[in-house]
Design a protein around this nucleic acid. Sequence first.
DNA 1: CTGAAAGCGCTTACAG
DNA 2: CTGAAAGCGCTTACAG
Lengths: 336, 336
Amino acid sequence: MTLKDIAKKAGVSTMTVSNVINGKHSHVSAQTIEKINKIIKEYNYVPNLSARSLTSKTSHIIAILVSSNTNETADNFLENPYAGRIISIIEQELQKNGYYTMIYSITQKEDLTCLIKNWHVDGIIFLYPENKNLLNEVYSAGYCPIAVFDSDIDNPDIINICTDDYLGLYLSTEYLIKKGHTNIAFIANYKGNPLLTRRFQGYYQALKDYNLPIKENYVFPFSPNYEGGVSAGKAIMTCSENITAAVTTSDLCAAGIIEGCRQNGFCVPQDLSIIGFDNSILCRYTFPQLTSVSQNMEKKAKTAVHLLLKKIKTGNLQENNFKKIPVKIIERSSVI
Amino acid sequence: MTLKDIAKKAGVSTMTVSNVINGKHSHVSAQTIEKINKIIKEYNYVPNLSARSLTSKTSHIIAILVSSNTNETADNFLENPYAGRIISIIEQELQKNGYYTMIYSITQKEDLTCLIKNWHVDGIIFLYPENKNLLNEVYSAGYCPIAVFDSDIDNPDIINICTDDYLGLYLSTEYLIKKGHTNIAFIANYKGNPLLTRRFQGYYQALKDYNLPIKENYVFPFSPNYEGGVSAGKAIMTCSENITAAVTTSDLCAAGIIEGCRQNGFCVPQDLSIIGFDNSILCRYTFPQLTSVSQNMEKKAKTAVHLLLKKIKTGNLQENNFKKIPVKIIERSSVI
DNA sequence: CTGAAAGCGCTTACAG
DNA sequence: CTGAAAGCGCTTACAG
């Protein structure tokens, strides 16, 4: 079943069928439309998108790029529990808008330009590019609009959807302050890391706004992962600062802290209140369950899709390319 | 840059360039090949796959299908931590073989045949189809080879890659037996569920092989999720059977049991040894860390890809369509 | 070993 | 409101 076949059956030209399919109804009479639609339904006709793509120079394919480590054993971003969720939301949103989702892991620039030229990809969503160079190369190749999440690129043409990191730590610190804590630790080796630095600044500002002491000893510069958390938990419980609460920059780190405390005979939250970051599925399965800062993943993903599609449709590159998505605290049992 | 342009620059016909690109070297002299490859590199030429797809009737696109609930708030399979990992492995394996990965969530059959016709999809990997009808409809549409995981379909033409469920529970039960346990509970409402029934049979057979009593009271028919686990944990600790160990059919359920015990003042593993199933990322973040049955996800994904591609290439539909992938126990701290 | 012709299934750009 | 012509960039099938 092709356009031609439909046209023959309807006794019209292929152009007319094409116009009906593409909703260019101003060019076709109401009766003709009805007749054609009937035949399309009857024969269950579906257009061949390769052919359409070939002539129209637009594929309606969006590529989700994932940087994959060449190191086979290393954790891949896709194994992050968030990856599935964000891809799921993106795909459904694209589908709703008549776009198709290709997923593609890349290790080098070359791979990528191939993919784009191969399929005339209309847009790219680059999930957490590990290195900026790769992103910039993709950008400067200039093939199509690009969206990323939580990037520190300073390119105003790339759509950049960011969690409000500053706000996240401001809120979590404030939450502990309002529970009566005054000696609050910050766990992360933030120096030199822009994202972690923004989070540190939220912590810093909250302490300042509430006139609490800000001590360098309150900062535990461990990596914000499980192992770093375990170390931090031990370090906090054995230091001399009488710390009663800690903010973190990941749930994994918070889970590690719970374990680190436990290994030294202490308990969360009785001996130490903690707050995670991400509100990941993990929060429900630690003991105690983790209070955490929730990123609005759905809003992040949908915003990225909408801005990308808008850019594709209008060709307007300047507008609204940076969005901060608010966060909120999800209360569970790791704070008293 | 098109084939034509390359041909002009090389002073040959488009056919010759096409042959070189497609590796049909028997038809072209060595010098010509070299000359053409040089030009292709120089101009960074990449073939247009829409055009190729249009003429060759093969797209090199594989669709990963995900059933998405119409219910917006319900958990989607993609939010399962496994989803990202399996998709990641599939995509990389497909890419290695020159195929492209589209991802597509479906709610009805109609969506699907559209996708396939639209893009001339060469093959389908259907991730955990929720209902068999959907899968059977896809199959009977007859468009292209299909692979699924852990399905109970009895269609020998569909590639079906299964974890060895029987072996999994046999091993976990045997593991507890060898640690000296004799009163071992099985947690899952397995009746009527083929997958859970296979797992139950592994448990049953292990007890039998080691001449241990098999009591109906050892079976706790709760749903194998977190909430079911919590209920099971309470039920086990308050029943009269003096149960000292339990096998489960999911890590979430095992995590729930830990919590259920805790709520009744008992501890894993001191009061109850438990084994999870899936060896998910969760195992590292519960307390105690979960000993679990590990599915070989990598092997599952790669096997699915290889059988699918083989079927696409050979057109042979009969062979090797069912594979059982072995499992193993990963030891952590939830058993004594 | 190489090439001229025809065609895949659409859309664009134009004419009426 | 409708249609005939040309073309997108490739490959198939054939001829030499």
